[in-house]
Design a protein around this nucleic acid. Sequence first.
DNA 1: CTGAAAGCGCTAACAC
DNA 2: GTGTTAGCGCTTTCAG
Lengths: 342, 342
Amino acid sequence: MKKTTIHDIARELDVTFSTVARALNDHPAISAATKAAVLETAKRLNYQQNKLASSLRSGKSHVIGIIVPSLDTSFFSSVVHGMEKVLNENGYSVLLYQTGESIKQEQKGLGTFLQSRVDGIISSVSSESDGFEFYSEIRKRQVPLLFFDRAIKELEIPSVTINDYKAGFEATEHLIKQGYTRIAHITSEKNLTIFNERFRGYREALEKYGLPFQENMVFKGTVGLELGQESVRRLQAEHLPFDAIFAAEDYTAMGALQQLLESGVQVPLQVGVIGFANEAFGAFVTPSLSTVDQQTIKMGEETARLFLKLTANKDYYGSTPEHIVLDPFVVARKSSQPQRQG
Amino acid sequence: MKKTTIHDIARELDVTFSTVARALNDHPAISAATKAAVLETAKRLNYQQNKLASSLRSGKSHVIGIIVPSLDTSFFSSVVHGMEKVLNENGYSVLLYQTGESIKQEQKGLGTFLQSRVDGIISSVSSESDGFEFYSEIRKRQVPLLFFDRAIKELEIPSVTINDYKAGFEATEHLIKQGYTRIAHITSEKNLTIFNERFRGYREALEKYGLPFQENMVFKGTVGLELGQESVRRLQAEHLPFDAIFAAEDYTAMGALQQLLESGVQVPLQVGVIGFANEAFGAFVTPSLSTVDQQTIKMGEETARLFLKLTANKDYYGSTPEHIVLDPFVVARKSSQPQRQG
DNA sequence: CTGAAAGCGCTAACAC
DNA sequence: GTGTTAGCGCTTTCAG
């Protein structure tokens, strides 16, 4: 069964294919009668426009490429959820690419997007130390590019991020206001701005409230359950006095919480814990885990909307790039509020 | 900056563009020397093949469309994660479409995929009562189609699902073997095979062990925390004797668990609870939540691999459709094991 | 081993 | 209001 084209419709109606094309695109200079006839025939013949041909000719694909480290993370899948929804509502399709935090994959993905002639690229970079040239290449080709969550500051590219500094500051401040004074921090060993900024917020909050910052109260590694557990074990083994933990990621906080409870430490009475990301489990564990919400779906929607807004004017790279910074907020639950526990 | 094409490369090297095309595609009948020259020039001119043109001409887009209800669900995002990974490794790009469980969206997505001339469609249907014709349309057009998790049995389409019947049976059997005898079931009101099958497993397990099935021990609604809470409240209000709950979804189980604990019921001592899906939070709550694992990533990978295998032979719809049924397994944690709690 | 030529299905400028 | 024409950038026979 051969696919039907505008030529088939034209033949049926004894008009030229360009008339059909116009009718299908609701061109003003086509009589209502022909339009109706064309539409009817198109439906009857099960016509489906060939977007490849249309895109090739017009230079617009109505596809936008999204690059994320991994969908197996509630943060990114949630953001992509928000983006796809908004983009879809506005007539765009989404090409998806996961990098697995690998620069190689990231470059491959960008290459594929370029070849597919996407109308734009929305990306959360894998690492910020490397891979500059590839993104500047995108820019040179005038393909609209937008960063979300993780941006490359050195490039003049619009972005939607959250204020990780503020988030780190407020998480730490929250602990301090609850009466905790010896606060450890657990973060990623990767050189990512998001983690660096949370860390900076932590330090400055300590400073603001006159608490000493100690290098040996900071633990770095691959974020996750194990890192949290191990960090607590090290704190205990080294007999470092501490009464609170701010982990830059929820699973890490959970690992710390588990290790604390296992070793008989009372949370939040003896030690307070706060995490980061507002993963679903935090509300359900005992004691419930305080955390910082990143407004993932909103971030996805905002990102998509900014993209749509920017691509609406002609030259995407004409004006200074717009940066939207979302405000995260502390979700105070039991793990960090001793007085709420009685 | 005009995009460079094979004509540009051809001009530079004083050969015809078809020679360039062949060299780029590593055609056997091209001398090593020309190939090298072409490759070098291509790199120098920052050439990126135009896939739109290539796909239009060749009839293969190397894009496959994936339809899911929503990415804001750990189940689907995890499955998509697995699929994208495998497809990507095999040279395919992924077009993503979320339906939000709406048939309209689903049809729109399928339409877009058809227009984009995807090389195949992998879908988890929104609802099984409706929307048949659209999928048979895909089939009529000979576009490879594969269902995962939620399939339409009436259509002769390959699929990858899990054995929900067995899952429901084993979850219930697990509770029975732990000594529970009055087991309530909470499930979706939607007419989806996955839920119907879990329900059937529940009933047959009761029967096998000689326990009575009671209609009033089954609660239906929109799965989620609230449904779980409300179901327990109704059980208590109506003074129905019960000592265990099998919820067909983890958040629902969590809601039930919360309501039980809140009303002073001891879990698992007085009432046992088991959920479904192995969401991340289950391992962390107190008592930890027993559940059924669906092997999401494996499902994604298996789905992608089956697709690749099936598209490898010429006529996708030539032979009887292959159905892969994955075996789920019970993850027994504390919420369903009274003797483990002392 | 390379060239010539046709055409995938559409858009859009130019006619009348 | 509709027809004519020229491509978009590539793949793919058919020649030689």
